[in-house]
């Protein structure tokens, strides 16, 4: 035993800064004084995600650790939809991001009456996170939560990530309650016919990710791409040929998708050659590494690329990565607000 609070305040703050997220969270729950010290130590979380399935989990990340808070209730009513009530315990696991090893702790028994609004407020204040969640993620669930409850507590979110919950009607309700958002990730199976409705595709997302959790469904077509209004598009389940992608590039040159900044797709099978993709386009091979910054933390390294211009004079570069049988194609558009910096020359 060591009387922590009898040390000088600067030393207490130093000790807190050397703790990991779990230890800091534990300390913050002990008393108002401890919570205040934790706040003064200014340990920040970079990312806060809430996962909704049969129970609720918070994922909190900083540069070195990822902490999962899996809340549970001992006496959930067995009927649907279930109400979002104060959790009775939380099981915490942490991952060291540099050396991914999971550490699972014994469950913490929680104070009665500390509900999810309190928890959200608590983690945001002690980890200096803004009061907006980065992502709310819906997963498969046997007894879904009342969406009104979820929306009321977790409605302030920048991002929405939806996987098939097991019920198409519930999937639709989620989209109705939460869209529009800045960042949207959705799986093909969320929709009854595995294709994204046009009224969603045309929304102005900062980021649209399709099929991240299950890339085996290839349901997105070229026509779907052409109606999209998102700035960053990442599609894992795409059913277009290299020839169609070539057509897509030509349509972009003519002015399609004027808001597009970064576009990433996967051709899952067979090697696709550059020539097929760039055929008929006046391009120049660029062999130096460039850094492409969309603002905030969003930075991409473009190792090389095939540069070409739209008819409005906007420059773009297409780049191909091969990863086993998969071919990743990326298109970067060099809008005026995008910062592109050249790095060391490769050739």
């Amino acid at each position: 035993m060591l009387p922590l609070l009898r040390l000088p305040v600067n030393v207490i703050l130093h000790i807190i800064r050397l703790m990991d997220l779990t230890e800091i969270l534990g300390l913050s729950l002990i008393s108002k004084r401890c919570k205040q010290l934790v706040i003064e130590a200014e340990t920040k979380a970079d990312f806060l995600q809430v996962v909704i399935e049969n129970s609720v989990t918070f994922i909190i990340k900083n540069s070195i650790t990822e902490m999962w808070l899996a809340f549970s209730n001992t006496d959930d009513a067995p009927f649907s939809p279930k109400r979002l009530r104060a959790p009775s315990s939380v099981t915490i696991s942490t991952y060291d991001l540099e050396n991914p090893v999971e550490v699972l702790m014994d469950p913490w028994v929680l104070s009665a009456g500390y509900d999810f609004k309190d928890w959200l407020k608590h983690v945001c204040s002690v980890f200096h996170h803004r009061d907006i969640i980065d992502y709310v993620q819906f997963e498969q669930t046997s007894i879904p939560f009342d969406l009104k409850d979820i929306k009321e507590v977790f409605g302030k979110t920048d991002g929405l990530d939806v996987r098939h919950t097991g019920c198409y009607e519930y999937n639709q309700l989620i989209l109705k309650e939460f869209l529009p958002v800045k960042h949207f990730s959705v799986d093909t199976e969320v929709f009854r016919d595995s294709s994204v409705p046009k009224n969603i595709l045309i929304q102005h997302f900062e980021t649209f990710i399709f099929g991240f959790h299950n890339e085996n469904f290839k349901t997105m077509k070229l026509d779907d791409l052409l109606v999209m209004n998102s700035k960053h598009i990442d599609i894992q389940g795409l059913e277009i040929s290299p020839k169609e992608f070539n057509r897509f590039l030509k349509l972009w040159i003519k002015g399609a998708l004027p808001q597009l900044e970064n576009f990433s797709i996967v051709f899952p099978n067979g090697r696709v050659e550059e020539d097929e993709v760039i055929k008929g386009i006046n391009y120049q091979k660029f062999s130096s590494q460039r850094k492409f910054s969309r603002g905030g933390n969003e930075e991409y390294i473009i190792p090389d690329g095939l540069d070409f211009y739209g008819k409005d004079g906007l420059k773009a570069s297409v780049q191909i990565n091969y990863d086993g049988p998969k071919n990743y194609f990326e298109l970067f558009v060099f809008h005026d607000h995008i910062i592109v910096t050249s790095e060391v020359k490769n050739q």
Partner: peptide, 29 residues
């Protein structure tokens, strides 16, 4: 100061709030 504080911080490893209260002799509100 860094290493001695780290030793004290390490005492919190794997502890629940109730255990932390005992380890660091922390008073309640």
């Amino acid at each position: 100061l860094n290493v001695s504080c780290k030793k004290v911080a390490n005492m919190a490893q794997g502890k629940t709030p109730a255990q932390l209260r005992r380890v660091y002799l922390l008073p309640s509100d």
